[in-house]
């Protein structure tokens, strides 16, 4: 039986249809994000991760540097007082500065006897390496013969980047004195060395 061509073509092609599985596959293809979209998401995620990482690193950096409103004198005083209380074991025992100097060879400066303190009058016990505000330092432990108390003298190179604004003794005339936890800490700069004395 003859039929109009249009009807025959329509009927013939309408018999052709995708199987359920093929339909599912094609529909799934459309649901999947395009590569372009995926790439955008990936870039965004990378940027967010980088931002988060930099935030975390900044946070830890600020914490490690000790971001605070404390002055440099106060920060040094807090640190040396804390060290002094611990009374860590001495690495070298000697009652002369000469004897101790031979031990401290890894310093960027030579241990010196400050003008304001005569170490010969003190009962020098020994010394050990330490650090002040991240700068390598030494500490000398001694007994004050007048008060019979243990004293710790810290010496480190006067790094102007780290200890900037720290008043030098020669200009102020007197050491900077700060009290921390009942302890008196005298700090001054002499011979390009930063000193801190804790008793």
């Amino acid at each position: 039986m003859k039929q109009p061509l249009k009807n025959s073509i329509t009927h013939h092609l309408n018999n052709k249809a995708l199987s359920n599985q093929q339909l599912k596959q094609l529909q799934a293809l459309q649901v999947k994000p395009s590569k372009k979209t995926y790439s955008s998401y990936f870039k965004l995620a990378t940027m967010a991760s980088a931002l988060l990482l930099s935030f975390i690193l900044s946070f830890y950096y600020i914490q490690s540097v000790g971001f605070s409103t404390l002055s440099i004198e106060q920060r040094i005083a807090e640190e040396v007082a804390k060290n002094h209380l611990k009374l860590k074991p001495l690495e070298i025992k000697s009652n002369t500065l000469q004897g101790l100097s031979s031990y401290f060879k890894q310093l960027n400066f030579s241990p010196v006897n400050p003008n304001s303190i005569s170490l010969s009058k003190q009962n020098l016990l020994g010394g050990r390496y330490c650090s002040i505000q991240g700068v390598t330092a030494l500490q000398l432990r001694m007994i004050n013969k007048k008060t019979n108390k243990v004293q710790t003298l810290y010496e480190t190179e006067y790094d102007k980047l780290v200890f900037k604004h720290f008043p030098e003794m020669s200009k102020s005339g007197e050491p900077v004195t700060v009290y921390v936890k009942g302890m008196k800490i005298d700090m001054w700069v002499e011979k390009d060395i930063l000193f801190a004395l804790v008793e």
């Binding site: 039986m1 003859k2 039929q3 109009p4 061509l5 249009k6 025959s8 073509i9 009927h11 013939h12």
Partner: peptide, 16 residues
């Protein structure tokens, strides 16, 4: 003018 064409239903596949 294609509408003027009528075809035997069995022959549509052959025609295509």
């Amino acid at each position: 003018t294609l509408e003027s064409i009528s075809i035997d239903a069995d022959l549509i596949e052959q025609l295509i």
